[in-house]
Design a protein around this nucleic acid. Structure first.
Lengths: 244, 244
DNA sequence: ATAATCGGATTGTCCGACAATATAAAGCGT
DNA sequence: ACGCTTTATATTGTCGGACAATCCGATTAT
């Protein structure tokens, strides 16, 4: 065993990680802010005292995380947008083998509270957007794919007019998994009409800012979806792997 | 204008992006599964027909996303764990300048439903864990930092025994921002006792599986926290930048 | 069998090079 | 002076090769 060498070492994390941490800190501390250009790779390399290749490896991480974005050739500081985070999160949910039960419970809770906030805060434009959605769905009631995507849109609209981004971020990964899976129900049970009816009622109540009514109907709607899954014979404890 | 050159081009995304996409697809399709070693960089480079540097840049993205993890020297396939995703999400919330209002609304909704599920499903072990938490908090009621972290732990315990990972993933980024900010309240208003009392009541109700009671008290508790913020003079429309 | 030793495999980092291209600068016609 | 084209420059993407450090497995010595 070596016996004399005292201390030394203590390098740990590879240099590329230190690069990304360093740049991230720079951003978070505000010394680099939103639209700023990142310094060129060569300059970063010089400043940090590492090779350009190392810098590049560090930047890839940040780029992947959405913290910097290519605009033309160079990189500029950005903020990761919801949809990216949400899709990442839903992929994680799939990998963690989250079950239908968990998903449907969470969806019920989140969509209900979302609808309630929407009922409190929606304006004329919001109402119109929702009504357009209803009209569209009515028109395409036989095209299952359209119904699915309009269903997703319906709930996204509610989220938008609920005016709470924290809630949006929370519900999005779940909705991203939950509603597309509904295609199974639709193809087997033809429940489009039922969905459309529920949406109609909800819009009517939202327009009247009737929070209690919205709560009741959204709960009912979500329970209905759950029942749909059960009636198609899906084991609610089955993980959500197939879809997406 | 060039006139002859027909087709060609159509390269798009840089090679390193294609590398990460390719590996990610490999993972998601199951051809590489959870604990598997990734091929060595040289081999990946050979298989994909690119240089090792390019492969490395591609891998950095996946590593940053938590899809592959260093185990010793080589990389193995992993799944991104909650806490990483959650902290990433909460950082995003901060960058999006989400307000206290949004956060507190979302927290109220999520913690309430979480507590209700916990009341349905908790077992003896869970009750004991909660009671330990209460005991600890009682013992350290004057150490504000301890109270804050025990408060966080309390709600995390509820989430754990609510047995719904989708909900956990949804609430975690919010709780990660919301409770630490409570330190402001505690230092100014000394509301530790009030928090502890609320927690005690909630535990009592959870033990009795009294869902309605839990709902009522959790709502009360969250409203109380909100009022605390207001009374410390914080503008609820202020973004959450300072903390974390 | 256990411990020490060795060698190959693999990653981390560096260097240097070059093509492609986006951006800035210079030129030019009006 | 202005708008357009051309030229230069800066910057990124990709490559090839190199080498030290280190982990892992096989071999050898105890």
């Amino acid at each position: 065993m070596t016996s004399k060498t005292v201390f030394e070492k203590l390098d740990l994390a590879p240099a590329y990680r230190q690069v990304s941490d360093s740049v991230e800190k720079m951003i978070r501390s505000g010394r680099l802010s939103l639209g700023d250009w990142l310094p060129p790779e060569t300059e970063l390399a010089a400043q940090l005292g590492v090779n350009r290749s190392t810098v590049r490896e560090g930047l890839r991480g940040l780029e992947h995380a959405g913290l910097v974005r290519r605009d033309g050739k160079r990189l500029k500081v950005a903020i990761p947008h919801y949809t990216e985070l949400a899709s990442r999160a839903s992929r994680a949910l799939v990998m963690h083998q989250v079950t239908f039960r968990e998903l449907s419970e969470a969806a019920a809770a989140l969509e209900t509270i979302t609808a309630i906030f929407a009922a409190q805060r929606i304006d004329e434009g919001g109402i119109r957007a929702l009504e357009n959605n209803l009209k569209e769905m009515k028109a395409r009631l036989n095209d299952i794919d359209s119904v699915v995507s309009l269903d997703i849109e319906f709930h996204n609209l509610l989220a938008e007019y609920a005016d709470n981004r924290a809630l949006s971020l929370a519900r999005e990964p779940i909705s991203l998994l939950f509603y597309p899976a509904g295609k199974i129900i639709l193809t087997r049970l033809k429940t489009q009409k039922r969905i459309l009816d529920a949406h109609k009622r909800i819009v009517a109540l939202v327009r009247k800012h009737d929070e209690a009514g919205v709560r009741a109907w959204m709960e009912r709607h979500m329970a209905d979806l759950k029942r749909g899954y059960e009636r198609t014979g899906i084991d609610m404890n089955r993980p959500m792997d197939s879809a997406v």
